[in-house]
């Protein structure tokens, strides 16, 4: 197939066929990570700007490594370095960057829809690296790839997404992607963190992790994002951890071949007990590894041709 998506903004734009194609391309880049010289000249002369209005180490680094392995010139701009801290509007910031002719902008922003807004106003290709509580498409792609590495078929799997569903862009992108591949999805968490309308994503809902943990093939734990919550919708981290944290005791009831995932960074002892995070069935580091390859694939696929 020809991959003719100008931007990667939301998983809802990507068909199963397109995702399969991304995975296939990713496989080529995984091979490169094993080489002595982990660099190819594919994006030589292209400029990738990582425009991060929110703090992020993992995703930003992952995109940076991906771009550099493709020989692109990668420039990182964080909120404090940009003029946003001086009151410049998002569109002005972006227009000023565009005057320097970047080919791809990787955007993380606290406002849902910010990457879409930029894609409408700028010529550069846009990759959404997380926008508010909306989506985080590259995370979903690397998550699905990681699941596929361990479970072959995604269709028919029962996947739990556990935690702060309301404020999670990782949950939204994963729900869409997993449903597209025919997985069964159940979101689990305190009711105050699960919007009623979440069912429109075609997922089941449970407020009791202990009761349903035996059903899942894959358990994705979400990070409790204290920085994003206003009034805390649960009484304390301790109580949250008691009911929705994953520990060895609870895992005894899970399927023997269950795998555990987490988009990171992990709040050890809150969402995931340290022994669980480090256990062989934990795929947390595989996720990180796949992250670089998926992002290489996307940068490669978007980097073709002249600026459109």
């Amino acid at each position: 197939m020809a991959f003719d998506f100008p931007h990667i903004l939301s998983m809802s734009n990507l068909s199963r066929e397109a995702m399969e194609f991304i995975f296939e391309t990713t496989d080529r880049f995984r091979e490169i990570a094993g080489r002595p010289i982990k660099k190819v000249p594919a994006l030589r002369g292209k400029t990738v700007i990582n425009l991060f209005f929110e703090n992020s180490t993992r995703t930003r680094t992952s995109f940076e490594i991906a771009g550099k392995r493709l020989s692109a010139d990668v420039i990182n701009i964080s909120k404090s370095a940009s003029s946003a801290s001086k009151g410049e509007s998002l569109v002005d910031t972006a227009k000023n960057l565009e005057a320097m002719s970047p080919d791809i902008l990787v955007v993380r922003h606290g406002s849902a829809g910010a990457p879409l807004l930029l894609s409408k106003m700028l010529k550069a290709r846009i990759i959404n690296a997380g926008d508010g509580a909306h989506e985080h498409p590259t995370q979903a792609l690397l998550d699905l790839l990681t699941i596929r590495d361990h479970k072959k078929n995604i269709a028919g799997l029962h996947v739990a997404i556990v935690g702060d569903i309301a404020h999670s862009r990782v949950a939204r992108s994963n729900m869409i992607a997993l449903r597209t591949f025919g997985a069964k999805v159940t979101v689990v968490g305190p009711k105050s963190l699960i919007p009623q309308e979440i069912k429109s994503f075609g997922v089941g809902v449970s407020y009791d992790l202990a009761k349903c943990i035996d059903q899942f093939d894959v358990i994705m734990m979400l990070r409790i994002q204290n920085e994003r919550l206003g009034l805390t919708p649960f009484p304390s981290l301790r109580e949250y951890s008691n009911f929705y944290g994953l520990n060895l005791n609870l895992l005894k009831c899970a399927k023997p071949d269950v795998v555990i995932m987490h988009p990171g960074p992990v709040n050890r002892g809150v969402e995931v007990a340290p022994e669980v995070a480090d256990a062989p069935y934990s795929l947390i580091l595989d996720q990180v590894k796949n992250g670089v390859a998926v992002r290489m694939a996307l940068l490669y696929l978007l980097g073709g041709g002249e600026n459109l």
Partner: peptide, 19 residues
């Protein structure tokens, strides 16, 4: 309605906006 920017419902849920 604090920080809400649209009607709370299916659309706000899908868009990830506080309703």
């Amino acid at each position: 309605s604090r920080n809400g920017s649209m009607h709370e419902g299916q659309v706000s849920c899908e868009l990830g906006l506080k309703g």
